[in-house]
Each structure stands twice: as structure tokens, then as C-alpha cells.
């Protein structure tokens, strides 16, 4: 069996969250080196705080200070920390009940070695040197009772927190997609035909009408017809071209499903449905197993294709 193609895929997004009245005060407290718990109707103090009482369902309004020291309720040990975790050397994860609280908080304990971790061990907060109203203002916990005093209030209440999320994947293609991409690397466009409805897909996919993989390979032209298009006028992060420019659906000759691509080389307002276009390839030296081998499409100057020739492919 031929090997499938795989490539790294890294995604990232900075999640920005509004905190609301309870978590806002909790995060403001952390910035000022204070830990606040919420008191529910049964008198219990919750750290982290609850926004709503789980029994009465009433909004929680009362927040009280708890101590920066506490007791480990449960723990485990991490020999090889993962990206983003509080410490980059071996550490313990623990559920920690802070003095004055009735529930436990999950955080890291910088114990140095697994042997120092045990249920019931006493720990204290090690504060971040640059607190800004985030759970990471607690850098981690450390063994022992020593605890830094609260800082002077650091300014305005914290209302928003931002958490960067970064994830890394290996994206894997199907064998059919792999053959399409390998042909692209040679400057050829390969379509595949559904054995049931006989439609030709570029790139190949399981036929969305019949639910079966495509089988027969079909060479497809790099010439095609604009079926529909839009003019991009809106700037956005990561944009590579200056608006206005045209993104079109292009029905390659020999295919039944259009592909999206750029139409360049003429003013945006001159692009039209039915326009005949051809692929403009990048320098051969730059070709890889990627659709970016085609830089864009350019009008060929042929007469426009009649509407009937593409009306079933819109």
C-alpha cells in the first residue's frame, strides 16, 4: 500500500473571556495576591468560586478571603511536563484545599521530586512575578507554610482574561488525496470519478451524493470556466493580497465540481460568470504536494462559456 501523506498542522487562538461579577473579583484578587472563595447558602466556601449556588441556583454574591496555604487532598506526578503546563521541570499535580475553603483547587506543586509528594502535605502559593488577573497569577504551589503577604491593590478591576490556546496535529490524507497531491507536485491536475454517478471530483473525495470512494483516475485540464465569484473588499488578519480582489469557483474542463481560486490579472469589476480562465503555475522549483503550486488563474481571452455549460455545476 502506498504511504499516505501527512503534514504538521498547528492551530492557535487567544481565547478572550469576559469574567462576570464572581470570576472578575476572583481574578482581580489573584492579581492583588489574594484568593477569594464564594459562599453558598449552605455556608460552604468554594475555591475556585462558583457563580451559582448548585442547590438553590441563586447567583452567588458573597466572596470571602481564604488563605494562601492549604492541604493536598490528592496528587499525581508528571515526569515530562507538556507544553503550557505551569512548570517545565518534573512536578506534581494536586487537588489543594486552601485553608478556609471547603472545596479543592487543581494546580501544580513544585515539589522537586515525587518522594516529597503525599496526601495531606502542606503547601503554599508561589505567586507569579507579573500578576495580571489570571489563574496563572498562581505560578504554582510549593511545599511548606511560608506565604507571601497580599500586595497593594493593583488598579482597576479585572473584567477580561485571555488564554492562548496552541495545538499541534499531524494531518493525514486519504490514499486518493495523496495521489492527487503527488500529481500536483508534478504540475498535473488529477480528478477521480465516482463509480455510481460518474461525476469527476477535483480534489478527490468520497462522493457526497453516493457515499462511495472515487476510483477511476481522470486527467483534468488546467483550463476552466468561472461559475460564480465574489469580490473581496474586506481586510482581515493574514490577508496576502490587497483588496479588492476576486475569489471564484472555477469548473476545470473535465471536472464536475468547481474549485475555489483567485482570479488575478484584470480589474475585479471585469470578472464575470462564464469567463474562461487558465491556471498560472508558480516556478517549478517551488512545486510541492500542495494546491498552492497554482498561484492564481488568469483569463484566456476565449469567448465566455454559455450559461448552459455550467448551470448544473453552480
Amino acid at each position: 500500500m502506498e504511504t499516505v501523506l501527512a503534514a504538521p498542522l498547528e492551530i492557535g487562538f487567544d481565547y478572550t473571556r469576559s469574567l462576570g461579577p464572581v470570576l472578575g473579583r476572583f481574578m482581580t484578587g489573584l492579581r492583588d495576591r489574594r484568593v477569594l472563595g464564594s459562599r453558598t447558602a449552605d455556608g460552604r466556601i468554594h475555591v475556585p468560586p462558583l457563580e451559582y449556588d448548585p442547590v438553590t441556583h441563586a447567583p452567588v454574591t458573597e466572596l470571602v478571603d481564604v488563605q494562601p496555604t492549604g492541604t493536598v487532598v490528592s496528587w499525581t506526578w508528571t515526569d515530562r511536563p507538556l507544553d503550557g503546563q505551569p512548570l517545565d521541570r518534573p512536578f506534581g499535580w494536586a487537588l489543594i484545599r486552601l485553608d478556609g475553603a471547603d472545596t479543592a483547587l487543581l494546580h501544580a506543586v513544585d515539589a522537586g521530586s515525587r518522594d516529597r509528594m503525599h496526601t495531606g502535605m502542606r503547601v503554599h502559593i508561589r505567586w507569579s512575578s507579573s500578576p495580571h488577573g489570571h489563574i496563572r497569577d498562581i505560578e504554582c504551589f510549593a511545599p511548606g507554610e511560608t506565604a507571601a503577604a497580599p500586595a497593594e491593590s493593583g488598579g482597576d478591576p479585572v473584567t477580561i482574561m485571555t488564554t492562548p490556546i496552541r495545538l499541534a496535529y499531524t494531518h493525514t490524507t486519504s490514499p486518493e488525496e495523496g495521489r492527487y497531491l503527488r500529481e500536483l507536485a508534478e504540475g498535473r491536475l488529477l480528478g477521480q470519478r465516482c463509480p455510481v454517478c460518474r461525476k469527476v471530483y477535483v480534489p478527490p473525495r468520497v462522493c457526497p451524493a453516493d457515499g462511495v470512494p472515487t476510483e477511476e483516475e481522470v486527467a483534468v485540464s488546467e483550463h476552466g470556466t468561472v461559475t460564480t465569484f465574489c469580490v473581496v473588499n474586506v481586510p482581515f488578519a493574514g490577508q496576502r493580497l490587497e483588496p479588492p480582489y476576486v475569489v471564484a469557483q472555477i469548473l476545470l474542463d473535465g471536472a464536475d465540481m468547481p474549485i475555489p481560486h483567485l482570479i488575478l490579472g484584470l480589474p475585479a469589476d471585469e470578472v464575470r460568470m462564464g469567463m474562461r480562465v487558465a491556471a498560472v503555475w508558480r516556478d517549478r522549483a517551488e512545486w510541492t504536494t500542495s494546491p498552492t503550486n497554482i498561484a492564481h488563474f488568469l483569463p484566456t481571452g476565449e469567448p465566455d462559456a454559455p450559461y448552459e455549460s455550467y448551470e448544473d455545476h453552480l
Binding site: 473571556r17 476572583f26 475556585p48 508528571t78 507538556l82 503550557g84 503546563q85 499535580w93 489563574i135 496563572r136
Partner: peptide
């Protein structure tokens, strides 16, 4: 929890 727990990246095996 995306406010107080996920930002620490506790992995599912440790939890």
C-alpha cells in the same frame, strides 16, 4: 473549566 483549570493544561491522564 476554561477560566480556572484549562489554562493550566492538566492532561487527561493526570486528572
Amino acid at each position: 473549566d476554561p477560566y480556572v483549570t484549562a489554562p493550566l493544561w492538566p492532561d487527561s491522564v493526570s486528572v
